[in-house]
Simulated scan of single mutants.
Amino acid sequence: MPLDPPLEPMLAADRGELPADGALAGGLRFEQKVDGFRAILFARPGRVLLHSRQGKDLTEAFPDLAAAAARLREPVVLDGELVVYHDGRLDFAQLQQRARRSARTATRAAAAHPAALICFDVLEHAGTPLLARPYHERRTLLEDLFARRILTPPFTLCPATADRELAREWLDPAWGAVGIEGVVAKGAEQPYRPGARGWLKIRSRSSAEALIAGTTGSRSAPASLLVARYDDTGRLRLVARTTPLPPAARRDLGARLTPAGAEHPWHGRHFSAGWGGRGELEVDLVRPELVAEFLADTANDAGRYRHPVRFQRLREDQLPDQVARFDS
């Protein structure tokens, strides 16, 4: 039976480094992890649907992709990443704006900022579901669809390799400049299991510094940090929130942070809980005088990291005015 939409995509679990060769069934295959929106495309005669990872219908917001899918000569269900290219790189902010469009505004946005679907899996072909087939068979079929020009722009084949050293090169933070966030590792013999975290993702990370400007939890034992940088106008701008701090870091920072009052640039400001949560964070403001080094991935929107960063240590060798300026 053909697959029924919506279909929950197969997911990947986080890893800090490339997994060992035998970590997944059949040996490892590596794909570039691109900075976009996960999407499943149902392209069948007389009906096209484009769904987000959560099952939201994005078809109307991306009429350019829907039109291209309607012209395909062979019916397929594709798994991939929605992206928008701008100035030689993937533009996540522009992609977000496009996802909110509808009707006439979506058509204008498509003309100004065309989207693409970077395809990394084919889940159904010519009415035959492929979920039970091993990854290497599905990948071969996907490559064949591009080789026979069934799939052409705005559809793009996601780069993949069995070469571990090439995968390691893709983890270089320099790839982040064009929108490559890291690597996804898959097993050559793995079937496609909707909703399961059966793949492994490794994000490219690099270190950076910012000022500690606030904490969550108690200031004497902070749960996480809000880190910031000054912009060229002297305004203190939020850069990121850290992941939960380990106990030793909580104790050390709690003894070093100095509470701030009305003189703090953020006095009276409210912070969203974010990351899928609702409401506001309870934040204790501290004097922005300590420099924190942290590890962050390459997903950065106008100077602010999209994902939580990992606190590494205090940089006692740096003064606050030596921290890089906020770069939007």
Rank of each mutant, 00 (worst) to 15 (best):
Ser102Pro: 00
Glu137Thr: 10
Pro153Ser: 06
Ala177Ser: 14
Gln190Cys: 04
Ala69Gln: 00
Glu60Gly: 15
Ala61Gln: 01
Phe146Ala: 04
Leu171Ile: 06
His136Trp: 12
Ala69Asp: 01
Asp121Arg: 05
Glu169His: 15
Pro153Cys: 08
Glu60Ala: 15
Pro153Met: 08
Glu189Leu: 15
Leu58Ala: 01
Phe62Arg: 01
Arg108Phe: 12
Trp175Leu: 12
Gly179Glu: 13
His86Asn: 05
Tyr85Phe: 15
Ala160Trp: 12
Phe120Trp: 10
Arg149Gln: 09
Glu169Val: 13
Ser102Met: 06
Arg164Thr: 13
Gly179His: 15
Leu142Glu: 06
Lys56Ser: 10
Ala174Pro: 04
Leu142Tyr: 02
Ala126Gly: 09
Glu81Trp: 12
Cys119His: 02
Ala111Lys: 15
Gln96His: 14
Val76Phe: 03
Arg100Ile: 03
Thr107Ala: 14
Arg73Ala: 11
Leu117Ile: 13
Pro154Leu: 02
Arg149Lys: 10
Leu58Pro: 00
Gln94Ala: 12
Phe155Lys: 03
Val83Gly: 07
Leu72Lys: 05
Asp57Val: 02
Asp79Ala: 08
Pro75Tyr: 06
Gln94Asp: 02
Trp170Asp: 07
Leu82Asp: 00
Val76Pro: 05
Phe92Tyr: 14
Phe120Arg: 05
Asp79Gln: 07
Glu143Trp: 05
Leu171Met: 09
Phe146Leu: 08
Leu58Thr: 01
His113Ile: 02
Pro134Leu: 04
Arg73Ser: 12
Phe146Pro: 05
Leu157Cys: 07
Asp121Glu: 02
Pro129Trp: 07
Leu157Arg: 06
Arg100Phe: 11
Leu166Glu: 14
Asp163His: 12
Val122Trp: 00
Leu72Gly: 02
Glu189Pro: 02
His86Phe: 14
Pro129Asn: 09
Glu81Cys: 11
His125Ser: 08
Leu151Lys: 02
Gly127Val: 08
Glu165Asp: 15
Lys56Gly: 03
Thr156Leu: 08
Asp144Gln: 13
Leu95Arg: 10
His136Thr: 07
Thr128His: 14
Arg148Glu: 08
Leu65Tyr: 04
Val178Ala: 10
Glu169Met: 13
Glu189Val: 04
Glu169Lys: 15
Gly179Gln: 09
Thr128Tyr: 09
Arg101Thr: 03
Leu171Asp: 01
Leu65Asp: 01
Leu157Asp: 05
Arg101Glu: 06
Ala112Met: 11
Pro154Trp: 04
Phe155Met: 04
Thr105Lys: 11
Arg71Pro: 01
Leu142Ala: 05
Ala61Gly: 04
Val178Thr: 13
Arg98Ala: 01
Ala116Asp: 12
Val122Asn: 00
Gln94Ser: 10
Ala70Leu: 00
Leu65Pro: 01
Thr105Pro: 00
Gln96Ile: 15
